[in-house]
Each structure stands twice: as C-alpha cells, then as structure tokens.
Simulated scan of single mutants.
Amino acid sequence: MEANRLIEMLLEHPGQYISGEEISRRLSISRTAVWKQIAKLREEGYEFESAPRRGYRLIRQPDKLSQAGLLHALQGNRIFGRRLKLLESTPSTQEEVRKLAEEGAPHGTLVLAEEQTAGRGRQGRRWYSPPGKGIWMSLLLRPERQPLSIAPQLTLLAAVAVCRAVRKVGGVDAGIKWPNDILVGGRKLCGIIVESVAEDELIRFAVAGIGIDVNLEANDIPQELSPIATSLSLESGRRIDRITLIGAVLTEMEQLYELYTQEGFAPVSHLWEALSVTLGREIAVHTPNGVLKGTATGLDPSGALLLLDQDGKHFTIFSGEVQLGG
C-alpha cells in the first residue's frame, strides 16, 4: 500500500525531487521505511534518482501495469476506472467483471490483466492475449432502465472511444470497421465485445471487453493472423506506454457515455460515421441468412448498418461479419 501511495506522490510531480522527509510525513512512515519502499520498487523495475537534501525523483517506470500508475492516469475520470482490479493473469477479464457485477460492483468498475489465457472475441472466437504486450480489459456499465435493444449502441460507443484514443496516443490513422473492429492500414489492431445481461427486457448490466494489440512485435503475432493483424507499435514505429493509452480510452469512454446519456445515440452515431472505414465502400456481409453484397450507406437509429445492393434494394444489418471490398 505504501509503495502505491509513494508512486502516486512521485507521479503527481513528474521530474521533480521530493524529499525523504516530505515522503515520510505524507505517508506517516519512518525515513527508514521510505528507503525500504524505494528499494522494493527498484526491485520491481522502477528507476529513481536520489540526491542529498533533495530526495527522490522517478526516472522510469517498468513496462508493467501498476495500480498507482493506472489511478494516476485515470485521475481526471469521475467514475470509469476509479474502481479497478488489476490481475497478473486470468482466463477472461469479461468473466471477472461479470462475477463482480453479480456481486453488486458499481457502474464503471474496471478489470485489467497482464495476460488472458482464454480471451474471447466476437462470435466465440479466441482472442490472442500475450503477457505484457497489450491491453486486455473489461468495463462494467449499468445503464439506467434501458431496453436490451440499445446494446448495439454501447458497442459502437466503445469503438468510437477506443479509436479516438488510439489516434491520439499512437498518432496513427485508425478507423472502425462495423461494428467494432479498429483497423490501421486494413489490418486489425483492436477488438471489442459488449455482452449484456437483461431482466424483463431491460439491461441489468453490460460488460465492454476491449483487447488492444499495443506493443506486439511481428514475431509475437501468430502466423495465421499476420496478414490481417497488427499492433500499435508496429504501425507507429515506437513503443507505446500502455498506461497512457488505458487512461485515454477510459477518459474517452466516460465523456462519450455522459454525452450518450444526455443526448442519446445521435451524436455518437455521427462520431462513429466520421471514423468509419466501412461506409461508402463495397462490402460483403456474412449473416445467419446468407451473404449480402452492396454499398454500406450509414447507420440506422439503432446502430444497425444500412446496405444498398446492386439492384437498389435496401437492407438493415443487425449482426454479421463484414468483409471490406465485397
């Protein structure tokens, strides 16, 4: 606990020294205990510079998620991520959040893991989640008395938030393939899955799972996925600080969710359309009833995809796998 509070204190004053006396006073521990906490953090990969009569300053954090670092990155948020659980490894962050939700966890609860051993994507596909290279997290949403029919809108909202954060932090030209895949250069960078639990046709809670390939190198990507998958570091040409990106995603999510609750889906829909790599293109949609081909023309008010085929017939697609290029 003292180690987390110490890191939080140093992160509040980046690049500045804080005296051992000040740390001792604020943490209510002895100067010897301060030194022991610094030594413990050094063993975990934190680098400090110390100077007589000046104290300590943080030089570098390990490439590892930390409670203190995450809370610092999320300090601008009122709700999303302020209650969080950080795991070294878990089969699925989705299942972790689902359990917490059933136990009464509040709206905005976040679970992150360094590794998932049984991560899931859309349509039950396995999501490759190696340790320390990506962002594997799930967020609990509790919409107030909303019908189950709005669940697709939450998926699109999450896609907009992630895409905006990736563009901001990674500096890449990311776009959204309907409904929720984030692509860069035509290859998948991130997958999103939103699963809802309903009662009497009202959403009890929803769990938004987000998997972002952040610092995977080319040899980290399974051979069968290499033609269609990429990572943010491969596309940007540099390593990306995962904590900074998590903070950006959750900040975008909270701001968009507040906008959504106040003004409805329309503003989110407009933002989604501006980031889409699907609209205006020839596509093929693999649906439970067969393959539909045509031009993606927009979203309907529910978030479904509108398609115009070569015969001039209009279709509304509520679910399906989109293939760009028809």
Rank of each mutant, 00 (worst) to 15 (best):
N180G: 07
A51E: 13
G325V: 06
S226G: 01
A304N: 14
R5G: 12
E224N: 04
L250G: 05
V34I: 10
A39C: 02
G209S: 03
I182C: 04
D309A: 03
I135L: 15
H13N: 10
P130N: 05
G185M: 09
I38Q: 09
G298D: 13
M137V: 01
K293Q: 14
P52N: 01
G209L: 03
G81K: 01
K133V: 06
H107P: 01
L225K: 07
E258H: 12
D309S: 03
I228P: 08
Q255N: 14
Q16N: 09
T117Q: 06
L140Q: 05
T93N: 09
G119Q: 08
D200A: 15
T155G: 12
L154T: 09
S66Q: 02
L65Y: 04
E43T: 13
P222Q: 00
L256P: 07
Q61N: 00
R125K: 12
G186P: 12
L71R: 14
E96G: 05
M1E: 08
T244D: 05
E144M: 04
R238Y: 03
F265N: 02
A174F: 09
I212M: 07
L292R: 15
M137P: 08
K64N: 04
K40T: 13
A274E: 15
C163G: 05
V291E: 14
E199Y: 13
S50Y: 13
G108P: 04
L324E: 04
V162N: 00
L110Y: 10
P130S: 03
Q37W: 00
C190N: 05
V268C: 00
S50A: 12
E96C: 11
G108S: 11
G108H: 10
L87R: 08
A118R: 15
G76L: 08
T316V: 15
M1W: 10
K85D: 10
P147V: 09
G185S: 03
E199D: 10
S302G: 08
V169D: 02
L140H: 08
S138L: 00
G171A: 10
S129M: 02
A159C: 07
V214E: 08
T278F: 04
G45W: 12
P227A: 00
S231L: 03
E47I: 15
Q146I: 13
V194A: 04
R281P: 00
C190L: 04
K64V: 13
G76H: 11
Q123I: 13
P267D: 05
R78F: 11
G171M: 10
G326E: 13
F205A: 00
Y46W: 00
S19N: 05
G124S: 02
T90W: 14
G134N: 03
G186K: 12
